[in-house]
Design a protein around this nucleic acid. Structure first.
Length: 343
DNA sequence: CCAAGTTA
DNA sequence: TAACTTGGG
């Protein structure tokens, strides 16, 4: 998934409250995929309605977005358009992994190994066009803006960040930084708890903020060089050089200055369209044709979609909608009460 | 993942 | 009231 430059980044912990009033561009596909993959039962089965339609993505999207609004965060979801042709290999590989995982999931359930089952169920997650469409419908009903990117959603989000239309981009992938996003927010959740991959162990996960400026400064590199490091390690558009991870990629780029010189100096064969890959990060296909506007949710439409069509509990939906309605009134009051209570 | 109930 | 468990659809 994306480019692995985790080792080059020192994230700063922030609280959800620090994002109060901020516009955050959320990688819609990334978020929905996360919900679909994680919101599952003990044996890996996702949440489903009475028509056997998967609803995990709607559950995650609804409750999390309510929490954002309640906390004064202004989300805008950015969805992928047509993927660049260089991405087809990545897409095919992902599809194969999904298919294999689906079989392994069934086998694990038969064997009664639910831990394995859940693991493979998550890896088998497929976000359908229908799921994306009904997610957009829900956002529309909630009065939350979303944008359909011409190509990569992360590129569009980064572009909006560069323009200053959004304060930060939110995604679990690092690609945003290569696309030029100034700020990347990771682990943008409320509960602050996450399962460790593989093991049924929960750890505290804080919201993290990474700035491009800090990454470049800490590693003493330019954005062009960061992109070159990404290409060395591997991106969605190219295979990385075998045996080179983020640390050695950084050292090589710092030693030689650019990717061409690294390849020449180290005698590495790299038969992929280098400049074409770079352009996908530097000059991606994006649009200025969007407007950001947040409006009051249409409660009847939300109830019809989630309750009537997908069996969500009416009480839970109403409780969530109450929290949206009360946001701005009760929230500051609550904080004052807390303050005075402490004296 | 999040909400809500239960527990220490 | 924070920590933990379970159900959600």
């Amino acid at each position: 998934m994306g480019v692995n430059i985790r080792d080059l980044v020192k994230p700063n912990q922030i609280s959800l409250e620090e994002l109060n009033g901020k516009v955050i561009a959320i990688d819609g596909y990334n978020a929905l995929y996360q919900f679909l993959s994680i919101i599952r039962q003990y044996d890996g089965t996702p949440l489903i309605d009475k028509n056997n339609k998967i609803t995990s993505h709607l559950s995650g999207l609804f409750y999390r977005t309510v929490n954002f609004i309640e906390n004064g965060v202004k989300p805008v979801y950015v969805f992928d358009g047509k993927p660049p042709s260089l991405k087809i290999n990545t897409i095919k590989t992902r599809e194969e992994i999904r298919k294999e995982s689906q079989e392994k999931w069934s086998l694990a359930v038969e064997a009664g190994d639910y831990e394995e089952a859940k693991k493979f169920a998550q890896a088998s997650s497929t976000l359908t066009r229908e799921m994306v469409e009904e997610s957009k419908k829900l956002l529309k009903f909630m009065g939350v803006p979303f944008i359909e990117a011409p190509s990569e959603g992360e590129a569009q989000a980064a572009y909006m960040n560069m323009k200053g239309d959004v304060w930060a981009c939110a995604s679990q992938d690092w690609d945003s930084l290569l696309f030029g996003a100034h700020r990347l927010v990771r682990n943008l959740t409320v509960s602050g708890r996450r399962k460790l991959p593989g093991k049924p162990v929960y750890i505290k996960v804080e919201v993290e903020l990474v700035t491009l400026e800090q990454v470049l400064k800490d590693n003493n590199i330019t954005r062009d060089q960061l992109i070159d490091i990404g290409i060395l390690v591997g991106t969605d558009y190219n295979e990385g050089v075998k045996g080179i991870g983020p640390k050695s990629a950084l050292n090589l780029i710092r030693k030689y200055g650019s990717l061409e010189k690294v390849l020449e100096g180290e005698g590495i064969k790299f038969d992929q369209p280098l400049d074409e890959i770079r352009i996908l990060f530097k000059k991606p296909d994006v649009t200025d044709n969007y407007t950001l506007q947040w409006s009051q949710p249409n409660e009847d439409q939300i109830i019809d979609l989630l309750h009537n069509q997908h069996d969500f509990s009416l009480d839970r939906i109403k409780a969530a909608l109450d929290r949206i309605r009360e946001h701005g009134k009760s929230k500051p009051q609550y904080r004052l009460d807390q303050y005075f209570a402490k004296g």
